[in-house]
Write a protein that binds this DNA or RNA. Structure first.
Length: 574
RNA sequence: CGGGGCGUAGCGCAGUCCGGUAGCGCGCUUGGUUUGGGACCAAGAUGUCGCAGGUUCAAAUCCUGCCGCCCCGACCA
């Protein structure tokens, strides 16, 4: 396409309200414009990249045997009431009424609609397995939209849903999607990692998030330095301590210490002159209405998901002041395990401690030299804390590291949660009715594009991988008023078009510097510069955006050379 | 939902404290000189100062209410 005819409004200035580099560059490169909070338009350049990602997704989903459908964004309340999510989903679900006062919502996801679709049309095991997907606009009324298209309210998503007759089939469907996702993100040129995620009541390792490694990511990822173990923060396991690891120390007599107004770990640490690792926090949780005391080292954080899963609770939250007082006989800040009247569970780390400091269950008092077994007992030990850099790997006992990532995809085995609630059943070989087993698989399309920019940019702008580039090559005549230069540029442009390349001819009457800056900003992988001096020798310049490398090539050969690079780089990642 | 900030030309901002002709840079239009990394000169165009009400001879500026946007936090199947 001729640049002079393109709608490509680039900007020199960094938008003041754009926090992350991908958002800044997408605005500056004329890819997106914000309509209102969390809602964006894609301009031609941005939409081309979106379509590149969508196309890769389509090819890989189809290759994996999934079939594309398209479902409505507007969904009736009845379906959501049937699944139970009308009351459980919360404020992210945007609800509204039509002229007849019937209730609807904008689909944040499509489990209900797809399950409804499938239950009507699939009746027998002969029709299974079945995997349907769509690429469609979702709406989630996010509490706080931010980071441009990375966390917005209206966004494009590929969502797939698999239906299987049995567990073995469901696992196979899951694996197919897992493999397809690896192919998709590899083709997008991303440095990513599938990480284990919490699968709630489903259990096992049937939930993986695909994380693009980036400092600006909103999620923390734990991964092992030695083996390929990787998990998100919620899920990251910490192994039980090995035998004999307990420190051998003489147990000193327990003492009560007056600590008026000293509540937080930091305050206790300063007041008692002990490190936070010698203090044991006693947190009172409300688990489905019952108080539970959770013990954890002062320098660690409780992982509420782990506590919830360990207890098998459906609701878990920190207890309110009344429950704390009922459980400990003291106000918040003075809870301890000694003499407490409720069930006590403790993180493995507490096992190793001797002569520790804890609350006294008495307003204004703490205890020192407390010892497990002698002074209190623990009902059960478990892994209950948030993983930290340097913790042992649960698989190989190597050390784990913590890094930031952007979640671009998620594969999840749903089990029968929706098929049960909505009665998606089939008849098996024996004519018995059985519930289908489901899986769901999502990819954030816009977020994938933003994540790609987070990983591939420099101070001049975006550096697209060949596979996602909106155009793969730009022809830049240094001066359009020189007839020879323009003629050669037109010829190269026509040659590239004829060869099927996605090419821009920068035919604007601008100075070379302006054209170079724009080409760098919008990140076109290859740039062919046609200037009078080189052309006099029959040559043009080929500049590679990624490396900055530039070489002179005979004008007659340039089309073939460019096409060769384009096709090899498209293959390479494919 | 709590805390903070902002709203003035297409974009980025000054002007608001202390009321009195609405400004600067970039961009845009026209003409000329330039032409390999965001050129220069000259002449121009562009505003319900977020909205509504109030005070005043007079409001971008003071007062009240509302709306929008951003940041931090809380929240997040």
């Amino acid at each position: 396409m001729r640049y002079s005819e393109m709608h490509l409004p680039t900007g020199r200035e960094i938008p003041s309200d754009a926090e992350v580099v991908s958002n800044q560059l997408m605005i500056r490169a004329g890819m997106i414009r914000k309509l209102t909070s969390g809602i964006y338009s894609y301009l031609p350049l941005g939409y081309r990249v979106i379509r590149k990602v969508e196309q890769i997704i389509r090819e890989e989903m189809n290759r994996a045997g999934a079939q594309e459908v398209h479902m409505p964004m507007v969904q009736p309340a009845e379906l959501w009431q049937e699944s139970g999510r009308w009351t459980h989903y919360g404020k992210e679900l945007l609800r509204f009424r039509d002229r007849n006062d019937r209730e609807y919502c904008l689909g944040p996801t499509h489990e209900e609609v797809i399950t409804d679709l499938v239950r009507h049309d699939i009746k027998t095991y002969r029709q299974l397995p079945c995997n349907l997907y769509q690429i469609q606009t979702k709406f989630r009324d996010e509490v706080r939209p931010r980071f441009g298209v990375m966390r917005c309210r209206e966004f494009g998503m590929k969502d797939a849903y698999s239906f299987d007759a049995d567990e073995a089939g469901a696992e196979k469907s899951y694996e197919k999607m897992f493999d397809a996702y690896n192919r998709i993100f590899r083709r997008c040129g991303l440095n990513f990692r599938p990480v284990e995620a919490d699968s709630g009541s489903i259990g096992g390792s049937f939930s993986h998030e695909f994380m693009v490694m980036a400092e600006s990511g909103e999620d923390s990822v734990v991964f092992c330095e030695k083996c390929d173990y990787a998990a998100n923060m919620e899920k990251a396991e910490i192994p039980a301590p090995q035998e004999g690891a307990t420190e051998q120390k003489e147990a000193l007599p327990m003492q009560s210490v007056e600590t008026p107004g000293v509540r937080t770990i930091e305050e206790v640490s300063t007041f008692m002159e002990v490190g936070p690792e010698q203090i044991v926090k006693t947190l009172i949780f409300n688990a489905d209405g019952k108080p539970v005391a959770v013990l954890i080292r002062g320098d660690h954080e409780v992982n509420e998901i782990k506590v919830k899963n360990y207890l098998g609770a459906t609701q878990l939250e920190l207890a309110d002041d009344d429950m704390i007082f009922a459980a400990t006989g003291a106000p918040r800040g003075f809870a301890g395990a000694v003499g407490i009247k409720v069930r006590v569970i403790a993180d493995y780390c507490v096992m190793n401690l001797a002569n520790l400091v804890t609350g006294a269950n008495r307003d204004g008092y703490h205890l020192k030299n407390v010892n497990i077994g002698r002074d209190f007992n623990v009902a059960s030990w478990a892994d209950l804390r948030v993983a930290q850099q340097g913790d042992p790997c649960p698989r190989c006992r190597g050390r784990v590291r913590v890094a930031r990532g952007i979640e671009v995809g998620h594969v999840f085995k749903l089990g029968t949660k929706y098929s049960q609630a909505m009665k998606a059943a089939y008849l098996d070989k024996d004519g018995k009715e059985k519930i289908m087993i489901m899986g769901c698989y999502g990819i954030g399309v816009g977020r994938t594009v933003a994540a790609c920019i987070e990983q591939h940019h420099d101070r001049d702008g975006i550096i697209w991988p060949m596979t996602l580039a909106p155009y793969t090559v730009i022809v830049t005549p240094v001066n359009i008023n020189e007839a020879d230069v323009m003629k050669a540029s037109e010829d190269i442009y026509a040659g590239l078009l004829a060869a099927g390349a996605e090419v821009i001819l920068d035919d604007r009457d601008e100075r070379a510097g302006v054209k170079f800056k724009d080409a760098d900003l919008i990140g076109i992988p290859l740039r062919i510069v046609v200037g009078a001096r080189n052309l006099a020798q029959g040559k043009v310049e080929l500049k590679i955006r990624k490396t900055g490398e530039s070489r002179l090539i005979a004008a007659d050969d340039i089309v073939a050379r460019a096409v060769e690079i384009i096709s090899s780089e498209t293959q390479e990642t494919g």
